[in-house]
Write a protein that binds this DNA or RNA. Structure first.
Lengths: 207, 207
DNA sequence: CGTAGTTTGCGACGAACTGTTACAAACTTT
DNA sequence: AAAGTTTGTAACAGTTCGTCGCAAACTACG
């Protein structure tokens, strides 16, 4: 049961719970009910309990779920416990915002390196990361075991960076540019598209 | 049938197609097949054709779909054609990245105004937008018919901005901070959480 | 002109997932 | 001790999705 691959839906919801739990923990809460998680995620409370109870009894009746331990449990279920190294490309406004925000660090991702092609940016410090020259890509990826490449570069160079990442063996690419990336089928591309998510939200507001 | 509300799944997929179509158009393509869209979205080609054919015959057999006209059709289906005004809060790295990126403009969103509380930032020009003082919030929202508020502010002030947006009548909030926002039930909050999306992608890579 | 190849549109069917209702058990609060 | 919460779990109906199959329309090419 736990050895089976999770359904797309279950994995998506568990990730969603993780998001809410992490935010709730940051705000000082230590315990949360399925009802409360439902209000923040829109997922049915019964569905939440069913999702969780399939893997063990994590909650206390009459109380709710302990946030710290539930986060740990979900990470185990998703097999994403521990630290994962990511590499960030582009040291512009967006790259700097990502590097200093802590959104990745909160979920166990460590920004192993940050790259840019602009010589005036190489060597610059962003938070506690130093911007490296793009030519060091494959070296750093191999050395640090980088699993994910995050693209905060202009659209017209995104494909080139993606190609280089694929060549270096990276299997997951997170794309913040507006380019459509072509990669081998064993590589996953996730494109961030806030405007499209807004259109989706807007539809339900308008109808 | 077209008057019925779309299912969550259909609306989500249509938005997703819109994303790929917009990207494809930017790269100079004029036509695309359901097979190609499938490769970029992971959605079954038959499912894509079924989603679209429910609203009309948009494709040409043997050829595929004309990108420009399909984008227009999907926008009509989602009832999100035309321009929508949004307001951006926070003129830091992230706010500046969003204001200059064009991701919203490509999908019919116009950044009507940009706000910050820092007096040294008020009056600054970001792209072709001038940063305004936060106290002008309600005035601008009413004047420009702002429908969406985008929060690119630190987590500890996000709730306060959200409250002010709700008071001004804004019904959709896009949250880039790591705060958990409490809003009335008729207001939609969408929290961007790239790290969680990464965990989700990572799960399927690891298993 | 004709033939081969491509792609949409559409129907049908089974499997999987989701929402809902209901309720006992465990825990807290008063 | 009693009342109120909340989880864990079962059962069932409805919806959605993936898949297979195939005719119709279009292009390309000789």
């Amino acid at each position: 049961m736990a050895a089976d691959r999770l359904t797309l839906g279950v994995a998506a919801r568990l990730s969603r719970y993780l998001q809410v739990l992490t935010q709730a923990r940051k705000m000082g809460k230590t315990s949360i009910s399925s009802q409360a998680v439902s209000e923040y995620t829109g997922v049915n409370p019964t569905q939440i309990r069913r999702d969780l109870s399939g893997f063990g009894k994590f909650g206390k009746r009459g109380v709710g779920y302990d946030i710290d331990s539930l986060i740990e449990q979900i990470r185990k279920i998703l097999r994403t416990s521990g630290q994962h190294n990511i590499a960030l490309f582009g040291a512009g406004n967006l790259g700097q915002a990502i590097a200093t925000s802590g959104v990745f660090a909160d979920h166990g991702f460590s920004i192993s390196a940050m790259f840019d092609v602009d010589p005036t940016k190489v060597g610059m410090r962003v938070g506690d990361i130093t911007v490296r020259d793009y030519s060091q890509l494959s070296e750093i990826v191999a050395q640090d075991g980088v699993m994910v490449g995050v693209l905060a570069v202009p659209g017209d160079v995104a494909q080139r960076v993606a190609d280089d990442l694929v060549a270096a063996g990276v299997k997951i690419i997170f794309n913040y540019s507006d380019a459509l990336l072509s990669v081998p089928s064993d590589v996953t591309v996730h494109t961030s598209s806030p405007a499209v998510e807004l259109l989706y939200a807007l539809y339900f507001y308008l109808s």
